[in-house]
Lab assay of single mutants.
Amino acid sequence: VTLFVALYDYEARTEDDLSAHKGEKFQILNSSEGDWWEARSLTTGETGYIPSNYVAPV
């Protein structure tokens, strides 16, 4: 399991995006899409895309 933590708040801009709150942890499901990674929030269980530069490894 690849875990990352949000460094900043991010507000989803499309229905495919996933909002993130600073300190929230995510499981990365797919990081092969360049700057946008598919992730699952460990807080809400929701999945979507987050900007890779907004997260760091735990």
Results as ranks from 00 to 15, higher is better:
Y10S: 01
R13D: 07
N53S: 14
L7Y: 03
Q27L: 14
T43D: 11
N53P: 05
T44Y: 03
Y49C: 13
V5Y: 13
P57L: 08
G23E: 04
D17L: 08
I28P: 01
I28A: 02
D9K: 03
T44C: 02
P57E: 08
T47L: 07
E33V: 11
S52N: 06
D16W: 15
F4S: 04
I50A: 01
D17M: 13
I50C: 05
K22E: 07
D17E: 15
A6P: 05
W36D: 03
L7I: 11
R40Q: 08
S19L: 03
I28M: 04
T47W: 08
A20D: 00
K22T: 08
S31T: 13
S31H: 11
E38T: 11
E46A: 13
E15S: 13
L18I: 12
I28H: 01
E15F: 10
T14D: 12
A39C: 08
T47R: 10
S52G: 07
T14H: 14
W37C: 05
F26M: 05
E15H: 11
S31I: 11
G48N: 00
Y49E: 01
F26Q: 02
A6C: 11
D16P: 03
Q27N: 05
E15W: 09
A39H: 00
A39D: 01
P57H: 05
K25E: 09
R13V: 13
N30Y: 07
D16E: 12
E24N: 01
L3Q: 08
L18E: 00
V55K: 00
E33L: 14
A12K: 09
F4G: 07
P51G: 04
T14M: 10
E46W: 06
V5T: 04
E15M: 11
R40Y: 08
H21V: 13
T47K: 10
D35A: 10
T2G: 12
P51D: 06
Y49R: 14
F4D: 03
E11F: 09
A12T: 04
V58M: 10
V1H: 13
K25S: 06
A20W: 06
L7G: 02
Y8S: 07
H21Q: 11
I28Q: 01
V58H: 06
T2S: 11
W37V: 10
E33M: 14
A6Y: 03
D16V: 13
K22F: 07
L42T: 07
V55S: 00
T43S: 12
T44R: 03
A12Y: 02
G45D: 04
E24S: 02
A39I: 06
D16R: 15
Y54P: 01
V1R: 11
T44P: 01
V55A: 03
D9T: 04
K25N: 07
H21F: 14
T44Q: 01
G23S: 02
A20I: 15
W37D: 00
F4Y: 15
L7D: 03
G34A: 13
R40T: 11
D35H: 10
E24Y: 03
G34Y: 09
L42Q: 06
A39L: 08
Q27F: 14
K25M: 15
S31M: 15
T2D: 13
Q27C: 14
N30E: 07
G45V: 01
G34H: 11
I50R: 00
T14Q: 09
R40L: 10
L3A: 06
T44K: 02
E11L: 09
E11G: 04
L18Y: 03
Y49W: 14
G23A: 00
T47I: 14
A6I: 06
Q27M: 13
E33C: 15
W36Y: 13
